[in-house]
Simulated scan of single mutants.
Amino acid sequence: MVSKDSATRRAGRVRRKLKSVANGRIRLSVYRSSKNIYAQLIDDTKGHTLAAASTLDKDLRGTLKTGADVAAAAAVGKLIAERGKKAGVTKVVFDRGAYIYHGRVKALADAAREGGLEF
């Protein structure tokens, strides 16, 4: 019997609910580490990543003080919205994974909304 930790189970629960309400929309997935934050636009029907952004991108690396604060998350949110619009994506479903919708995750989501993504 394989044991799953609580974060993996929680992320699975979130993704299961998203699939039921997504109606074929693209998924904006967020990964947050202790030093950086990452975002991807994923088409689950084809299994392809349409756009990605993180604090490690050359566009952001020089302008940010650190990759682990709310300002960095907001910058990544704006960048993923810009790249998503360039890829033709406007409506998405927000996948917070196992993270609480607070702090850096919320800042990324708010910046993506301001950038033009609808969710």
Rank of each mutant, 00 (worst) to 15 (best):
T8K: 15
D5A: 07
T90Q: 12
N23C: 03
G84E: 09
Q40M: 09
R32F: 09
D95S: 11
T90F: 01
V21L: 10
A111E: 10
K4G: 10
V76M: 05
S34L: 07
R13G: 00
G47D: 07
D110P: 02
V2N: 07
G103S: 06
D59I: 09
H48Q: 10
Y38N: 12
R15A: 08
I42T: 09
R83A: 04
R15P: 05
L18H: 10
S3Y: 08
R10S: 00
K35G: 01
Y38T: 13
V14P: 02
D44N: 03
R113Q: 08
S6H: 09
L117I: 13
T49C: 04
R27N: 07
V76D: 05
G115D: 11
F94I: 15
R15E: 09
D59W: 03
G97Y: 07
K58Q: 14
I80H: 04
D69Q: 07
K17S: 03
L50I: 07
V89R: 04
T45Y: 04
K17A: 03
A74P: 01
A39I: 03
A98G: 13
V76T: 08
S54M: 08
N36E: 12
S3G: 02
D95F: 11
H102Q: 12
V14H: 15
V14E: 15
R13I: 00
A107I: 08
L50K: 02
K85T: 12
S3Q: 10
I42K: 07
A71P: 00
K19N: 13
K65V: 14
S3T: 01
A81V: 03
G12Q: 06
A81L: 06
K4S: 12
D95Y: 13
R27L: 08
R16L: 05
L108M: 13
R61H: 01
T66S: 15
K86E: 15
T8H: 03
T49N: 05
A87C: 02
L108K: 06
R15K: 14
A75E: 13
D59C: 05
A22S: 15
S20L: 10
R10M: 00
E82I: 01
R15F: 04
S54N: 12
S20A: 13
V14I: 13
G47Y: 11
L79V: 00
L117Q: 12
L60C: 01
A112H: 03
K17G: 02
E82F: 05
G97E: 10
S29V: 14
V14N: 12
G67M: 11
N23T: 02
A53Q: 11
K65C: 08
D43P: 00
A22D: 14
L28F: 00
G97S: 06
H102C: 03
R83W: 12
L117Y: 14
K86H: 13
